[in-house]
């Protein structure tokens, strides 16, 4: 997984290199991400067609929250598709 710029500075999209993307919806609802929304770090998390979109909470900065957000996204993706966020290329399960 890697982050790319969203439509505005407060939005970052997490690209996952492998299809299928069906698990993204479930990942968006993962506890680790919900916690970040609850404490205001994130304003919201959405599953798009090929990526997970995170929106930054008000008066927060990506630089300061990078490690926590990354860890949560990673945990969420790993929970749905083990190995997809960190494993070597090609080890990603073809079905989630």
């Amino acid at each position: 997984m890697h982050p790319v710029a969203g439509p505005d500075a407060a939005t970052v999209r997490w690209v996952v290199p492998h299809e299928p993307y069906a698990f993204l919806a479930a990942a968006a609802g993962h506890g680790a991400l919900r916690e970040l929304v609850a404490d205001g770090t994130l304003a919201g998390v959405e599953a798009l067609a090929t990526c997970l979109q995170t929106r930054l909470g008000p008066e927060r900065s990506w630089a300061a929250e990078a490690d926590r957000v990354r860890a949560a996204v990673r945990a969420a993706l790993e929970a749905q598709a083990p190995g997809c966020a960190s494993g070597p290329c090609g080890s990603c399960p073809r079905s989630a």
């Binding site: 790319v4 970052v12 957000v69 960190s86």
Partner: peptide, 15 residues
């Protein structure tokens, strides 16, 4: 970059 790349070497590999 909207988001700094990871510093941890395992996460760097994934990135």
């Amino acid at each position: 970059p909207p988001f700094p790349p990871p510093a941890d070497s395992e996460e760097q590999t994934a990135w």
